[in-house]
């Protein structure tokens, strides 16, 4: 007896739940050769708005945890990713048309990248923070703090690795994130949200939207409650317009990158604000 194939209808990941798009729209995800794989939700601007609300609500809790705690939570995700390797490899082979060896290599690199960033959670502070020399009886200390809600346009290619390279550096410092997944191969993003939903990451810290980045990005760029914008995968969009829209509310904006975003602590510190504190050393 042959097994009946059950194609999935994927949903969005907003505030720890998996809602359908408010618009009710879906689109077909196909293999690189054009064969049907699954239906994915096509997010609308209202889904983007809801995702920002969820991310904002999660921000104070997530940014209030210690760096050590966040590192542990992120490391735990790497463990879960390890357990789902086969699924991620399968998805990369079908959507991106990779060979098994190439897909396995990419998933391994993605997990390595995640662990690498997890390690930074309680260390970036020491690297980016500073005790400033002053000529007076004061301490003067600068420390980075998370900027808030970050909207990310995920790289269109590089599947799971591309996604990890943009999400991990943003959330490890305590930011919350709204990710617009790659339109053509969103499966890695959806599976990652299934991993996150069963991990220790609080609801709303990572929100994943699937659908047209060209449609959603302008709403996120102009949204007054989004603090920063990572245009990593926006090379094919009208990204200068996005920068202009973001300037209205003084967002931090990372321009698009061709190719895979590099693993660097600069991506972590970019989404932080520096707080400088003066304090008297002694009263003489």
């Amino acid at each position: 007896m042959t097994h009946l194939a059950i194609p999935k209808t994927y949903k969005l990941y907003i505030g720890g739940a998996f809602p359908r798009s408010e618009s009710g729209r879906t689109y077909e995800v196909t293999t690189s050769k054009g064969a049907f794989i699954a239906n994915a939700a096509k997010a609308s601007r209202k889904d983007a708005r809801d995702a920002v609300v969820a991310a904002r609500a999660a921000f104070s809790g997530w940014s209030g945890t210690t760096g050590y705690n966040r590192g542990q939570v992120l490391y735990r995700i790497a463990e879960l990713l390890e357990g789902r390797r086969a699924q991620f490899v399968d998805e990369l082979r079908s959507t991106d048309g990779l060979t098994e060896a190439a897909a396995t290599k990419q998933v391994d690199s993605a997990i390595d990248a995640w662990v690498w960033y997890a390690g930074w959670a309680d260390k970036y502070l020491q690297v980016a923070g500073n005790g400033n020399p002053v000529s007076g009886p004061y301490f003067n200390i600068s420390t980075p703090e998370p900027t808030g809600v970050v909207a990310v346009i995920a790289p269109a290619t590089h599947g799971l690795l591309g996604l990890v390279s943009v999400i991990a550096p943003v959330i490890l410092s305590g930011n919350t994130v709204v990710v617009v997944a790659s339109e053509s191969s969103p499966l890695s993003a959806i599976s990652l949200s299934e991993v996150l939903a069963t991990s220790d990451v609080p609801a709303g810290v990572v929100n994943v939207l699937t659908g047209s980045a060209a449609e959603i990005a302008p709403w996120l760029a102009s949204h007054a409650d989004v603090n920063a914008l990572d245009l990593a995968g926006a090379e094919a969009l009208e990204w200068v317009d996005l920068q202009i829209a973001a300037a209205d509310t003084l967002k931090r904006v990372l321009p698009p990158e061709s190719g895979l975003p590099a693993l660097t602590v600069d991506r972590v510190t970019f989404f932080t604000e520096t707080k400088t504190v003066w304090h008297t050393k002694a009263l003489i």
């Binding site: 920002v52 102009s222 949204h223 007054a224 409650d225």
Partner: peptide, 14 residues
């Protein structure tokens, strides 16, 4: 109301 007049989503900071 701000969303309707400015055309972009506003936030609780405003």
């Amino acid at each position: 109301r701000q969303k309707m007049t400015t055309g972009r989503y506003s936030g609780p900071d405003y």
